[in-house]
Design a protein around this nucleic acid. Structure first.
Length: 343
DNA sequence: AAAGCGGGGTA
DNA sequence: TACCCAGCTTT
């Protein structure tokens, strides 16, 4: 392959650029195995800029594997609140407990991938960055860069197919003497210059290796098919009596959102015949689903499911809610208070 | 192989 | 609005 025949000079150009252009991220300026692990879990499907404040707060509360392993699930989940993909927090918690308990600590990509929440990407990242193993990472950034370097016109069914297709090339391109630096340099290039829209090719350190730049096809690479979006509507109940709010608690053994609270659905709380008043409508998107949620003020049914709980308003800061639910409750609570205050 | 997961940023 | 982001797990 054309690119691989020049891989030595490519690696050098990339490394020279990364040495001076890299962002001073906290897990780079003060590296450790633990900080690498936490940063990688937090960065899954999440932009660095978004997770950065969470990382700093996390490190103050859980500075090492031991502190995290000994923390309660509630405490761990609370510090993840708003970041999304909450199974990452539960997996990271379990991982810390397994790591502390392990007689022999994991030291290879294969050993790391056996831990909860660690897949091919994250195991390669941890083992290369923190342990010096020659494992190439292939994330969205690397896919984009390699597709452009080769001006690859193939159409991939989804991101997973694209990752598989570029794994061989990524492995061959890896600087095995400095795998951690090389991997981070590739991702840094994708995050700061080889952008999805309007890549900054004029300042790219490896532009001379890039077939897409030569052909002017940057914006069309890579080609990955998208799922059609689905529209969903959900009705939720706002039941505030005295100083207590009715919330739905998701079971601890649920595979998703375990232990989190949310505004209950209207059907779960309110009899069909009871009066209701629309307080607010909000839209949000979860991957390819577009969800519209309507929140109604209503009265509760006589008998409620055990998963529906009265939560004192003063306890709201202590429980874990998803970002949108936290925001809606704050909005509705201040609406309520302002109305009450004028009476 | 495909679906599900969350939220924020951006054009 | 639609798509993307340092992906993994479950079905």
């Amino acid at each position: 392959m054309d690119l691989l025949s020049k891989k030595i000079t490519f690696r050098h150009a990339l490394a020279q650029w990364y040495a001076k252009a890299q962002r001073p991220l906290p897990w780079r300026t003060q590296p450790s195995l633990y900080r690498t692990v936490v940063s990688e879990l937090m960065a899954q499907q999440t932009q660095i800029k978004t997770m950065l404040p969470y990382f700093e707060r996390w490190m103050r509360r859980f500075p090492n594997f031991t502190a995290l392993a000994e923390a309660s699930s509630e405490d761990v989940l609370k510090h993840w609140e708003g970041l999304g993909y909450y199974s990452r927090a539960r997996n990271l918690h379990k991982l810390a407990q397994q790591y502390i308990a392990a007689e022999s600590k994991p030291r290879t990509q294969a050993a790391w991938q056996a831990l909860p929440g660690i897949g091919p990407y994250t195991s390669a990242a941890i083992s290369s960055i923190a342990l010096g193993e020659a494992a190439a990472v292939v994330d969205g950034n690397v896919v984009r860069i390699l597709a452009r370097l080769n001006d690859d016109a193939r159409v991939f069914k989804n991101n997973g197919e694209a990752v598989k297709a570029f794994t061989t090339t990524a492995d061959a391109l890896l600087d095995t003497a400095n795998p951690g630096q090389h991997n981070q340099a590739m991702m840094e290039l994708g995050a700061t210059l080889c952008l999805k829209h309007k890549p900054l090719c004029t300042v790219c350190p490896v532009a001379t290796f890039c077939a897409a730049k030569r052909n002017g096809t940057q914006d069309a690479r890579p080609k990955i098919e998208r799922k059609a979006s689905i529209k969903i509507e959900i009705n939720r109940a706002w039941v505030l009596q005295g100083d207590k709010l009715l919330l739905h608690r998701i079971a601890e053994n649920s595979s998703q959102l375990a232990g989190q609270y949310e505004l209950p659905t209207l059907e779960a709380v309110s009899a069909k015949t009871s009066k209701r008043r629309l307080l607010a409508s909000r839209s949000r998107a979860i991957t390819h689903r577009r969800i519209k949620e309507h929140i109604y003020q209503t009265k509760p049914k006589r008998t409620l499911d055990h998963s529906i709980e009265w939560i004192a308003v003063r306890d709201l800061p202590r429980i874990t809610l998803s970002g949108p639910h936290r925001r809606w409750i704050n909005e509705l609570m201040s609406m309520h208070n302002s109305v009450a205050g004028t009476q």
